[in-house]
Computed example of a mutant assay.
Amino acid sequence: MSVSTAESPLSGVRVVTLAPNLPGPVAANRLVTLGATVTKVEPPAGDPLAVASPDYYRLLAEGQEVRTLDLKDAAGREALESLLEDADLLITSSRPRALEKLGLAWADLHPRHPRLSQVAVVGHAGTDADRPGHDLTYQAKAGTLSPPMMPVIPVADLAGAERVVGDATALLFHASRSGTGGYREVALAQVVEDAAASVRSGLCGPGTPLGGGLPTYGIYRTADDGWIALAAIEPHFIMRLGEELGVDPMDRDSLEGAFLRRGQDAWEQWAAERDLPLATVRPALRS
């Protein structure tokens, strides 16, 4: 159930974002849903996302004021400074050396706007923050790719956006208590490394509990050549599944034979009636 803006936790919070492409817009969109007022500042050439995916761009920019400013121009920088005077949070995604040239590094911003907090999205942490990269290269280094397949979802960008929101709300909370803004850096390469810990720890990946090693957590073909996703992990779900299917032992061969008895929609209805975690597999999305 949605809530009104007045009831939203970030109602009254003013955000300025200079971050184009994907992590910044996704984070800004999420902040809007939480009640924040967001001004999206774009360069004269616009946000590259608007060219790559116009529909996604419009979806993510919904509810925001979009301003076009040339920050390489004195008038553009002056207009930005006016926006920052009343802002609580600034989101950036330029490399540190680019921000320094514009006078937008934290060391420059904080004295001018002591109440303002900043979340800086970078590719790599620490001294490597100026090193170029994108979601694909971050995933490559983290070991989450299966060449030559391209990733279906940009994990670094989308998970990084959620980290931006988390760090932003922490900064806003701190500022509300201290009266002083703070700074956080979100390194997208580190976001993927953190996510890949599930693979390094043996939870995900081929043959692991969430990667095919557990028969009751997998994808099965159905009688109509469709597919269902079964996610019975907890003992009570596994026990009920076996009882309802009449399958013993609960191995992959037995489950494959059982699920070939009905079509995928029939299985989903069957599972809903028995409170079991099973869903039909939606065909892969195509743009």
Rank of each mutant, 00 (worst) to 15 (best):
E7K: 08
L10T: 12
R14C: 03
V15Q: 01
V15G: 01
L18Q: 06
A19N: 04
N21H: 12
N21M: 11
P23V: 11
L34T: 11
G35I: 11
T37L: 03
E42K: 00
P44I: 07
P48E: 03
P48H: 05
L49T: 09
A52I: 14
S53H: 09
P54W: 06
R58G: 04
Q64I: 05
L69Y: 13
L71C: 06
D73Q: 14
A74C: 01
A75F: 00
A87L: 06
L90M: 07
S93E: 01
R95I: 05
P96K: 03
L99Y: 03
L99N: 12
E100K: 15
K101F: 00
A105F: 01
W106G: 08
L109P: 02
V122F: 02
G123L: 03
G123H: 04
A125T: 01
G126A: 09
T127R: 14
D128H: 12
A129S: 15
R131L: 04
Y138W: 15
A140D: 10
A140Q: 11
K141I: 05
T144N: 06
S146C: 06
P151A: 09
L158W: 01
G160M: 04
A161L: 07
E162V: 02
R163K: 00
V165F: 11
G166R: 06
G166K: 02
A170D: 03
S176Q: 13
G179D: 03
G181Q: 06
G181H: 06
Y183R: 12
R184Q: 14
E185M: 10
Q190C: 00
A196M: 09
A197W: 14
S201F: 14
C204M: 14
P206H: 08
G207I: 11
G207W: 12
L214W: 02
I219L: 15
R221H: 13
A223Q: 14
A223T: 11
D225P: 05
G226R: 13
I228Q: 04
I228R: 01
L230E: 00
A231M: 13
A232N: 08
P235C: 07
P235W: 05
F237D: 01
F237Y: 14
I238V: 15
R240Y: 01
R240D: 09
R240G: 01
E244M: 12
V247W: 08
M250G: 03
M250C: 01
D251C: 08
R252M: 08
D253K: 07
D253P: 00
A258Y: 10
Q264Y: 07
W267I: 13
E273R: 14
P277I: 07
T280M: 11
R282P: 00
R286N: 08
